[in-house]
């Protein structure tokens, strides 16, 4: 099941540059939350804080509180956290030297799973969930790089799903995909929220409107407005949100 996320006064720095300036946000379980905002406003930084990847970069700092179902993420070790909070990146990044199959089970092996039957079952399940199974079931031994961009992206989603996280972070997962692959991914996201809590960063307003239950608008490291998607796109409360979503920004 998806877990809820509670974010309090989250601040993040690159060097002396303060990128997130005190974000407060409640994210409900089994919902799709879209993060929108102009380039450079801190969306990627925000999601990277949630699985504690931001702090792994040099000269970075994080302050504030993030809790998963009421439990601080800083009480978990980062590896365990990243098993619970999966991430899919903007650019599909299959492990280049690995086959399709090995890509999917990489996380499970890392977590110590050795049983061949179990690995196989889990790979199939994840590939099915990522709506990729039918396209690759006859060539699981091919390199992950032999897939098209959209397929690679779904492969990365399958890889993230295999370790059975409860929260899925997606940073512009469909930005490099054609409309058909995008529709696939969007349908996938909609069906995945039954099981996961999903946070998706997107530059595509219509995409946010189509798939997200709630939408958050970030601007210069601040959360301007967070509310039900239907409200954000029909009647936003903040003038800056309205200017942004109607394309009249700046």
């Amino acid at each position: 099941m998806g877990q809820s996320l509670s974010i309090h006064n989250l601040e993040a720095w690159y060097g002396s540059n303060k990128i997130l300036k005190g974000i407060n946000m409640e994210i409900r379980p089994n919902q799709v939350t879209a993060i929108i905002g102009p380039s450079g406003c801190g969306k990627s930084t925000f999601v990277r804080c949630i699985n504690r990847m931001h702090e792994t970069l040099p000269r970075t700092r994080v302050r504030g509180e993030i809790s998963l179902d009421g439990r601080s993420i800083y009480d978990l070790n980062p590896v365990a956290l990243r098993k619970t909070v999966g991430m899919v990146f903007q650019k599909a990044n299959p492990f280049p030297s690995m086959s399709i199959y090995d890509n999917v089970v990489a996380g499970l092996r890392l977590n110590g799973m050795k049983n061949k039957q179990e690995l196989k079952a889990s790979a199939e399940k994840s590939l099915r969930m990522a709506a990729l199974w039918d396209e690759v079931k006859d060539r699981l031994n091919y390199s992950g790089m032999s897939l098209s961009g959209g397929q690679q992206q779904r492969l990365c989603i399958a890889r993230a799903l295999a370790v059975e996280p409860s929260v899925l972070l997606m940073d512009e997962p469909a930005s490099a995909l054609d409309p058909i692959a995008t529709t696939h991914i969007e349908e996938l996201i909609r069906s995945l929220k039954e099981i996961y809590t999903i946070i998706i960063v997107t530059h595509n307003m219509q995409q946010a409107a189509r798939i997200a239950d709630s939408t958050a608008f970030f601007l210069s490291g601040e959360l301007v407005e967070h509310g039900p998607t239907s409200e954000i796109f029909t009647n936003p409360h903040d003038k800056r949100t309205e200017d942004y979503i109607t394309g009249r920004f700046g």
Binding site: Q206, A209, N235, E242, I245
Partner: peptide, 9 residues
């Protein structure tokens, strides 16, 4: 144009 918010109204 996929208008939203006030544009759509």
């Amino acid at each position: 144009q996929q208008p939203v918010a006030k544009d759509l109204r």
